[in-house]
Design a protein around this nucleic acid. Structure first.
Length: 108
DNA sequence: GTGCTGACACAGG
DNA sequence: ACCTGTGCCAGCA
């Protein structure tokens, strides 16, 4: 049994609530919860992200998490997440179109 | 108690 | 678009 802290559980709950094609920045999740900070959210995902769509949680710039940017890209293509990646821009810096994909709680 | 590290955010170059 | 420095919060040796 993997008991999880209340805070971690809440973070995972929010991440799991993010609809496909939408994403939230670490800072947005922290602000949405009204507790901790972006670093804490990142730490939780790094620890318990295995049971939640961590790829839907990215930097404020729209860049996916390090070490798994390739995996995240696969999910974005499968979910239909609006990407800014283009032949013109460096494909190495795969970014998500936050202006479109940014999700703020249910109903938005 | 002190210091370092980390799946970050923001500003400057 | 990329790198560096600084600030913020929490965990760990």
């Amino acid at each position: 049994m993997t008991e999880i802290d209340d805070y971690s559980s809440r973070v995972l709950d929010v991440v799991d609530a993010i609809p496909p094609g939408q994403v939230m920045s670490y800072g947005d999740v922290a602000e949405y919860l009204g507790a901790g900070g972006p670093r804490q959210v990142g730490r939780v995902l790094a620890r318990y992200g295995g049971g939640a769509p961590w790829w839907r949680v990215i930097h404020a710039d729209g860049t996916p998490a390090p070490g798994h940017d390739a995996t995240a890209l696969e999910h974005y293509l499968a979910e239909g997440t609006p990407l800014l990646s283009r032949e013109g821009t460096a494909r190495r810096g795969v970014r998500v179109n936050m202006r479109q994909a940014r999700w703020h709680g249910p109903g938005r």
